[in-house]
Nucleic acid binder design. Sequence first.
DNA 1: TGAATTATTGAACGATTTGTCAAGAACAGG
DNA 2: CCTGTTCTTGACAAATCGTTCAATAATTCA
Lengths: 176, 176
Amino acid sequence: MFLFWKKGYEATGVVDLEHATGLGRQSLYGAFGDKRALFLRVVERYFEQVLKPGIELLDAPGSARANLEQVFRYWEVTAEAPEFHGCLVGNSVPEFGAKDREMSDVLKRKLELLEGAFARALQRAKRAGEVNANLDARATARSLLALAQGLAVVARVNREPSFVRSVVQTARRMLD
Amino acid sequence: MFLFWKKGYEATGVVDLEHATGLGRQSLYGAFGDKRALFLRVVERYFEQVLKPGIELLDAPGSARANLEQVFRYWEVTAEAPEFHGCLVGNSVPEFGAKDREMSDVLKRKLELLEGAFARALQRAKRAGEVNANLDARATARSLLALAQGLAVVARVNREPSFVRSVVQTARRMLD
DNA sequence: TGAATTATTGAACGATTTGTCAAGAACAGG
DNA sequence: CCTGTTCTTGACAAATCGTTCAATAATTCA
């Protein structure tokens, strides 16, 4: 998973995958079919291990606003980490967007699930009076998604921690 | 330029470049050196033709707030266009981020120039009382950059015009 | 016009790509 | 212990990658 995450789909060769997994070639192809199918599994794995915990955190009972704040803090610690490779889903969008509609749809669905979780948390925070009452939950959820994806892209080249903090600060301001 | 923009660096072969430019192979290599050098030229060209006009628009005299609004409208029309391929710079970040620091620095500089233009416009709008007086120009500029890059990524798979409009609406709200 | 330089063309290069084949190792059940 | 199945290993095949070579065409300049 980390190979695809770090280097992207095309730049990762099957020989790299062999070294990373320890499996031989025939085992890889026997188990997954081909490279593309393996990548699909990796996307699912990435969603389960990275995005889904965030979604569950947003849906966790208690203060939705506090949940959102925790997600923002998660953005900070990951994007400031010395080895940050953005979001596997977002990284893959440009790579498949022009030539693989099915893959694009898979990626799109993952982003939609994240957007939905943001929207639910915002709606819940709104009802609890934890965020601005005039806030458009749907539009804000979409913007938080875009902000996160943009942060994932820009923070890969701009390594200043202050950059990440500026963006996260704005994310917080969006709720008030 | 459009080939790299649409398909990315690795996915674009030199045979594609021949067909796109009409030039023969030796001519391409004689004129640019190699594929990577050609891509560097393409990035410069993209900056001149796409990003720089936006920067100049932000720096244009008159109402800075109006200039910002015009940029937001530009986001809308481009991201909603039937053939939208995101931002060449942002698309390239994941592709080079893990293996080509020099290229990453080039991409980083392009994003910084955009961020700087946002910051100047925001500062100017602040002095003119066209935006919230408590606004942190630097942080907001960084966030507008991230929002734009995120929009460029997500809007490639989520083709609903309402998505783009939601994000742009939030960008406007960030100024108040 | 003639000679020298530049530009273009098609073929070929070596390296690397994904995917497959076939032989051998480990293991299962009877 | 022997046979049949599964798994692993390395080599191989076909295609494509970026790049270069060699020959031809075009152009420039005296």
